[in-house]
Design a protein around this nucleic acid. Structure first.
Lengths: 340, 340
DNA sequence: TTGTACGCGTTATCAA
DNA sequence: TTGATAACGCGTACAA
């Protein structure tokens, strides 16, 4: 352990009490301007860096929030994190990043870690396999706040920041229908995750509204990742040719990428043979072999809003629990169709 | 503050001392198996979650490392972070993520924050404008370890994990030269940053080795981002048509993307009119209008190695300071040329 | 094997 | 305006 300056050392150096030093360091009101300056000067000279740990212990507050993301590399989450970071930076909060890798156990582990570090609050987008309501509740009972984003858990008293998934899914499905397609398949997320369920619902409702019968074979669970989209699409292409769908609604862009790969691999064309749409507007979407029609989720803004809401909860006990909706936007590119 | 169970409460509940509880919780040797189990059971029942803050204070060790990245959204850094996260997770370290936004002041701020939280070590890739050697040294004198990655600062006693930037830049430049190009420009990073300087050096050496005169107008600072690449390329295209370069070596992929945009915008073709190569193999590179020839930096592996090295430093005072080289790989795609 | 006393570095509280 | 003292929750060192 190298040389670490403490408040006591500064106090001794100046012949004042620790409290005087503490007050100067924290811009407390009850201190003479002169004294404060003197303290600050020597603190700087001695290379003092506050011990946030000790401070947190006595204040029972860490000025730190934790983030749990299911995946770091898809462009959506880094973009969210950037939004979060912007807000925490501006509000003098620190950010501990954890990663559940879509794994329920790791998610609980991550939450426990954050809890043990006594973060003031947690931002979380649930993992694919997660069913951690108990843990969420425990955390909230400990006095930590939770704000969900994108993948939410409702009715446990936590705020949520998201787009209108069901409506958005409805809308993009109807957009496909407007091209005249009737054989439409859905690559779905796990229905245990909010957006898996809601996007599936939107898809179904759009079919129903347009009097298209639901073919059970046309709903295949892909999960949220490229490889899942790939194998789900493979499964669909294993159907007799006659039964192939004419269009695909993927639960998100990565799944759509995987599906596109599977389609192109067997020599079919997008959208000429099979049209496809995604969800999120990944950074790669417009660059795909067939630029992807998708529902844009403003990730940066979602991160910002979620962080802002969390900090409000932390700073104001009476802050209302809210379901905050961010506008999504239909981005029409080539992958959805060639007529029209 | 909700109900937060402490060691004392568990001790009182069981009628034992706090130490007994502490020992059980920490798998200490000197405790009867029976006692331990009893303690663990009630701890669980009561919903105890360790207070890492208090523990860190007494142990003067946080089991936490900090990461400072200059940019979160370029695919390189999230990928590095994933590697880091994998290692910290496996070794039971926590990860505090900070973001300098390529800004020197914010970088220092981030480091101070990490220092105040008494992280055991810091992983950092320096910001574009950074000149924070003093701060790095101060941190190290406090007993925290630093490991640089990608953008390093040498000779201050910190390990570094990177690719051989100069050689790699040399190699990719020579690859361009092998197509017969002689009018080659370089979009450079700031030379105050290691990779800005070394990649420029490699570029220059390749020209020299091949007896190509260096045209000063052909070295334009773009920085590391897309917009910088765009405006740098604009500047080059402002030269009289006769003086236009035939090929571009960009300091990294985002800069290359910006340059490509500028080239395509004026109606020129890549690589037919102007060839271009990048550096890093961004996730978008193969999807570009002209798939980008680039030098792949294995980001995930860099993150892993850097985290491993940092943890070694933390756990072993005598761990050697090293310059760790990761292999880079020339990825040849279409953007570099059409002959050959 | 278990318990006691103390300290980690800071701030809250109350007294001067 | 300043200082003394206790407390935050836990682990270390030593004693029992």
């Amino acid at each position: 352990m190298g040389h670490r300056i403490t408040v006591k050392q500064i106090a001794d150096e100046l012949g004042v009490s620790m409290m005087t030093v503490s007050r100067a360091l924290n811009d407390s009101p009850n201190i003479e301007a002169k004294t404060r300056e003197k303290v600050l000067a020597t603190a700087k000279k001695m290379g003092y860096i506050q011990n946030h740990i000790a401070r947190s212990l006595v204040q029972r507050k860490t000025n730190t929030i934790g983030v749990v993301v299911p995946e770091i590399t898809h462009s959506f989450f880094p973009e969210v994190i950037r939004g979060v970071e912007e807000v925490t930076y501006a509000n003098n909060y620190q950010l501990i990043l954890t990663h559940s890798a879509e794994n329920a156990k790791r998610e609980i582990n991550a939450i426990d870690t954050l809890a043990s570090k006594r973060v003031d609050g947690i931002l979380i987008s649930t993992a694919e396999s997660a069913n951690s309501s108990k843990k969420y509740k425990q955390i909230m009972e400990m006095g930590m706040y939770i704000v969900f984003f994108d993948r939410c858990v409702h009715n446990i008293g936590a705020s949520c920041v998201r787009i209108e998934d069901e409506k958005s899914s409805y809308k993009i499905t109807e957009h496909l229908i407007s091209y005249g397609y009737t054989k439409i398949a859905h690559l779905s997320g796990p229905t245990s995750v909010s957006i898996g369920q809601t996007r599936l619902n939107g898809f179904k409702k759009a079919l129903k509204k347009n009097n298209i019968d639901l073919n059970k074979k046309y709903i295949v669970e892909s999960g949220f990742h490229e490889d899942g989209g790939y194998s789900a699409m493979k499964k669909i292409l294993d159907l007799p040719k006659k039964e192939w769908p004419r269009a695909i609604v993927a639960v998100n862009d990565p799944a759509a990428f995987g599906a596109m790969k599977a389609i192109l691999e067997v020599g079919l064309k997008v959208p000429e043979d099979i049209a496809i749409v995604g969800f999120s507007d990944d950074i790669r979407s417009e660059l795909m072999p067939a630029p992807l029609t998708t529902m844009r989720q403003p990730a940066y803004q979602i991160g910002k809003k979620a962080a802002e809401k969390l900090i409000k909860h932390i700073q104001n006990k009476d802050e209302l629990v809210e379901d905050i909706i961010i506008d999504s936007e239909l981005i029409i590119r080539k992958s959805c169709g060639i007529y029209k």
